[in-house]
Amino acid sequence: MRRVKKEPINMNEPQKKQHSRAIDPELWVDRYGDYLYAFAQSRLVDRTTAEDVVQETFLSALNSMKNFKGRSSERTWLTSILKHKILDHFRKRQREKTPNDLGVPQDNLQQSFDDKGHWKKSPSKWDTNPKKLLEQKEFLRVLHTCLEELSGRVARTFVLREIEGLSTDEICKVLNISATNCWVILYRARMLLRRCLELNWFDTSPDGAS
């Protein structure tokens, strides 16, 4: 025989409880921890730092819980806090790091062209359907690896431009670089990624090149 649990039902109490449960910070960790962690990782934040920024996000959410009006979902709210934390982290890193890869982007790029400025290895024909590409887990993995191979400064600039969609001006402010420098870094990032994807996906996968 199964027993049916009987609990006193109070029409007002459960509603109140539910409301307070909706902002139970410890539940955040189980509910949104992995998502936020993946979000940070896709912005090329390394694993240890990703843990830190997620924790900082929860703490600052806890402190500003009053500001959460429930207009957006909890996840959206936490994500927007995390975004700011990532920008702060970028700023900090940019200041800390010795600018060893500053302004000398030619070394790597020069390999792509001969003395006359012609392609040394001409770009191959790609199957250019973004939707189809992203459906393939293996492609995502290759893309992620290629992104991780970008050096810190190049990666940060590229992430701000192509994932966060910031303008040149905004990027220059966050990373404290000149506009010209920004464009050169983005050029470098695109050249490197193009070559990495071509080598590891489009030239190898049977359905990569068409």
């Binding site: 921890g33 962690y37 993946a38 990782q41 694993r47 843990e51 997620v54 887990k137 995502l140 993995r141």
Partner: peptide, 9 residues
């Protein structure tokens, strides 16, 4: 997919 390939906490 990008979530799938990331490690979880």
């Amino acid at each position: 997919g990008s979530v799938d390939i990331s490690e979880s906490l």
